[in-house]
């Protein structure tokens, strides 16, 4: 097994290459995907040609609508929405059409497509370019939601997403894009709905998504020096959600902390906390601690931006609160 370390961008591009070589029905469309603004689709046009790497006008609803139609009629499109925030422009198509036509057609139609969407706060990109909206897509039925936190997970999940017969939202946190990680040369898939334990621990179960996984791991390292062993779980997909892995961990730690960069109000943490209260009540030894971004527009100032989203310090404090060791 090789010990190759490549960037998140390279890992995603490899997934595209492998899947496009494997299945000629797979194609990419989106704004400037031939050049590739964030690099994930760069150079693909050279190998696969302009028919399979299609630049679109600046109109997200049209791109997603075209992808839905193509998927219904037998292709496997990947539509890129350059900034996660702009998903709202295509929300009608995504939420009401893409996710529901399989049911509406009594199974006659499938909508096998992926929305690849760089998102999240990085360097004060400000309004319209910074939000983490993954939790908005756990509400509509029929959609799957992937939130990879490493190059390895990104590649394995994207390949599964492209092969899945359902529409999958694939969120790439922009702070992760340039990070490197181990990705084997050999082909592999990561099934949708399988969480990954990023660090084992016995005292607190810390569920983290996307870019907050790195912060959670750093926080866990610091807490370890105080003798607190945090188990960091990355669900990797929000729909389907691997409840079993989280529950197993909770049966060991009895303390649950959930952190996301999406907004805290009505976020994934709210959903997980509700699941914990409904299904795992007897394994809670303390109230669940929930961290997320405040309900405000994200500021351009990098300093203010950092103040709005959960930090490593916030995570450390939340774990201590869960253990009754602070506040």
């Amino acid at each position: 097994m090789s010990h190759r370390r490549i960037t998140f961008i390279q890992a995603v591009r490899e997934a595209f290459q492998e899947e496009m070589r494997r299945d000629e029905r797979v194609f990419i469309l989106g704004q400037d995907v031939r050049a590739g603004i964030f690099g994930t689709t760069s150079k693909l046009v050279g190998e696969f040609g302009e028919d399979r790497v299609i630049n679109t006008p600046i109109c997200e609803s049209a791109s997603v609508g075209a992808a839905v139609g193509a998927a219904m009629t037998g292709l496997r499109p990947v539509v890129q929405i350059m900034f996660g925030d702009f998903n709202y422009l295509a929300m009608e198509i995504t939420a009401n059409q893409a996710g529901q036509w399989h049911y509406l057609s009594d199974g006659a139609l499938k909508v096998p497509m992926v929305i690849e969407t760089p998102s999240g706060a990085r360097g004060g990109a400000g309004y319209g370019h910074s939000q983490s909206l993954e939790a908005a897509f756990i509400l509509p039925p029929g959609l799957k939601v992937a939130v990879p936190s490493t190059p390895y997970d990104a590649k394995g999940l994207l390949k599964s997403a492209i092969r899945d017969d359902n529409p999958v939202l694939f969120f790439e946190h922009r702070r992760l894009l340039t990070q490197r990680g181990h990705v084997p040369e050999e082909e592999y898939l990561i099934p949708l709905g399988q969480a990954d334990i990023k660090r084992e621990g016995k005292d607190v179960t810390l569920v983290a998504l996307s870019a907050t996984v790195q912060k959670a791991l750093s926080a866990a390292e610091r807490l370890s020096q105080q003798g607190i062993e945090v188990e960091v779980i990355d669900p990797r997909t929000l729909v389907p959600l691997d409840k079993e892995t989280i529950f197993k961990s909770l049966q060991k730690t009895y303390h649950l902390v959930v952190v996301e960069e999406g907004r805290r109000r009505g976020g994934f943490g709210a959903e997980l906390t509700a699941i914990a209260a409904e299904e795992w009540f007897d394994t809670l030894d303390a109230p669940v601690q929930r961290l997320g971004t405040i309900s405000a527009p994200l500021p351009y100032s990098p300093v203010l931006e950092a103040a709005c989203i959960p930090s490593e310090d916030d995570i450390v404090r939340a774990v201590l609160r869960s253990l009754g060791q602070e506040e």
Partner: peptide, 29 residues
């Protein structure tokens, strides 16, 4: 806490008489 209560009931411990060490005197596991 729910977890402490379940454990106490499983083990036949009369938790009403326990002193809690958690916040607001909450009995924990």
């Amino acid at each position: 806490s729910p977890a402490a209560r379940r454990m106490a009931e499983d083990k036949g411990i009369d938790w009403q008489s326990l002193e809690g060490s958690g916040p607001r005197g909450r009995i924990e596991r």
